[in-house]
């Protein structure tokens, strides 16, 4: 049962990775990254049970937090860049 779930997760991760690499827009990548992070959290949880060490669920928790902060940082940067680009375009035109 664990194996099947794990395989399914890995396949999903692969798909998310593909989207992150192909892009093309930034939103695709941000979404893909977020999704990839979520799947990693799940994978960790499943594997923790599979290895018989459920106490490692703490780890999954950390991953979730980090992922959240990472996505926010990316968004913040992206917003910053967008507005900067806009400024540059305005000054140029």
């Amino acid at each position: 049962m664990y194996y099947a779930v794990t395989f399914a997760l890995i396949i999903t991760m692969g798909l998310a990775l593909a989207r992150a690499i192909i892009g093309p827009s930034v939103y695709d990548r941000v979404l893909a990254m977020n999704m990839f992070g979520t799947k990693t959290v799940l994978l960790l949880a499943v594997v923790a049970f599979m290895l018989g060490r459920p106490d490692f669920l703490d780890l999954a928790l950390t991953y979730a937090l980090i992922n959240f902060i990472g996505v926010l940082a990316v968004l913040e940067f992206f917003r910053d860049r967008a507005s900067r680009r806009k400024d540059e375009n305005e000054t140029e035109s």
Binding site: M13, A20, I21, G23, R29, T40, Y63, V74
Partner: peptide, 15 residues
């Protein structure tokens, strides 16, 4: 920008 995001993914995979 994309490279940095991908290296985030890389880290998760490595972890």
């Amino acid at each position: 920008f994309a490279a940095v995001m991908l290296s985030g993914i890389f880290s998760l995979l490595l972890a």
